[in-house]
């Protein structure tokens, strides 16, 4: 029992630390690309703390208050169901009682709970943002899960532990053995991280900040916290599935950072797409690639 508690706290703390450092790095990276100095690498931590210590927070009814709590609970549940380390009793959380499809669905629980809060605020701009978010989700989820399904078919399991165990060395990484699956899911994965070409939903100048429009003070702080933790959970999930997982914390940080760097590099380079362009893109390029890889790796007898 005590083990579970310490483990859970370690996972939550680690996700938070990695989250704000990664985002701080992202802001630095972005600034350097734009030839600026950029903020401190801890800037996201400062922002988050400032919001958590605001002295005033407005709420629009009980559902509005509980929305951020639901999204936070969803994010922490996701974190606790992703195994962070391979062959270790630490940083496992409750991942033994979950699987890949569950994690992918858990990623969506929180935002949907928060959508209720946005709706109950009565701000039409927020609801517009939610609809955009759900539309984008519709676009990205198909190729994302198809890419993961290719891995599940390859290993005949949905358990993240089993898939990690099947990738003992570089030659057995799914990135190497099933590169098509990686290509199919990587762009939707970036969109699920709200990275730049696909960030129309919550971008500050789009429909007045999108779903977050009415959130202020400490509730906004909670939303920021969960976003950073969720990002790390997603990165770890992909590192587990395609980069063979990690046996030490340093390895984990290196692998997730590599994935994050890829996301950051793409998102600093490409301009934002409109919602329907995003969906159309996902249904043409990554999904088309997905169909090709299904035909190539599953339908034909050589596979």
């Amino acid at each position: 029992m005590l083990h579970y508690f310490i483990d859970a706290f370690a996972m939550i703390g680690m996700s938070y630390f990695m989250g704000f450092l990664f985002y701080g790095f992202y802001r630095q990276f972005n600034a350097r690309v734009q030839r600026r100095w950029g903020p401190s690498i801890f800037q996201n931590f400062f922002d988050n703390m400032k919001f958590l210590f605001k002295t005033e927070t407005i709420i629009h009814g009980p559902m509005f208050f509980f929305g951020p709590m639901i999204i936070f609970a969803g994010a922490v549940t996701t974190v606790l169901f992703v195994p962070y380390l391979k062959d270790s009793i630490w940083l496992q959380g409750f991942s033994q009682s979950g699987n890949m499809i569950l994690i992918v669905y858990l990623l969506v629980v929180g935002p949907l709970g928060n959508a209720l809060a946005v709706g109950s605020s009565g701000n039409p701009f927020g609801v517009m943002g939610v609809t955009r978010g759900l539309t984008r989700l519709m676009g990205l989820e198909v190729p994302f899960l198809l890419g993961l399904a290719l891995v599940m078919v390859q290993h005949e399991t949905a358990s993240v532990h089993a898939i990690m165990a099947a990738q003992p060395d570089f030659a057995h990484w799914n990135l190497v053995t099933n590169p098509l699956a990686f290509l199919v899911m990587i762009l939707p994965f970036m969109a699920s991280q709200h990275a730049s070409p696909f960030d129309v939903v919550g971008a500050p100048v789009e429909v007045y900040a999108g779903p977050r429009v009415e959130f202020s003070g400490r509730l906004l702080g909670i939303l920021m916290t969960q976003n950073m933790m969720m990002t790390v959970a997603k990165l770890v999930l992909i590192a587990d599935l395609f980069l063979g997982g990690a046996t030490t914390i340093w390895e984990l940080i290196a692998k997730t950072f590599a994935l994050f760097l890829l996301t950051a590099a793409i998102s600093t380079s490409f301009p934002r797409l409109r919602t329907e362009q995003t969906v159309d893109f996902f249904w043409k390029i990554p999904l088309g690639l997905g169909v090709i890889s299904v035909i190539a790796t599953i339908w034909f007898p050589w596979s």
């Binding site: 958590l52 210590f53 605001k54 002295t55 005033e56 927070t57 407005i58 709420i59 629009h60 009814g61 208050f65 509980f66 709590m69 639901i70 936070f72 609970a73 969803g74 922490v76 549940t77 606790l80 169901f81 409750f94 009682s97 979950g98 569950l102 858990l106 629980v109 003070g217 400490r218 909670i222």
Partner: peptide
């Protein structure tokens, strides 16, 4: 496990939120 973890975190974060400083007021 799923329901338990979710409910526990939900209760904990709500409690922590109420314990924290700062005024909340309803529009």
């Amino acid at each position: 496990a799923v329901m338990g973890v979710f409910a526990t975190i939900f209760v904990l974060i709500t409690a922590l939120f109420f314990l924290g400083r700062g005024r909340m007021h309803r529009a």
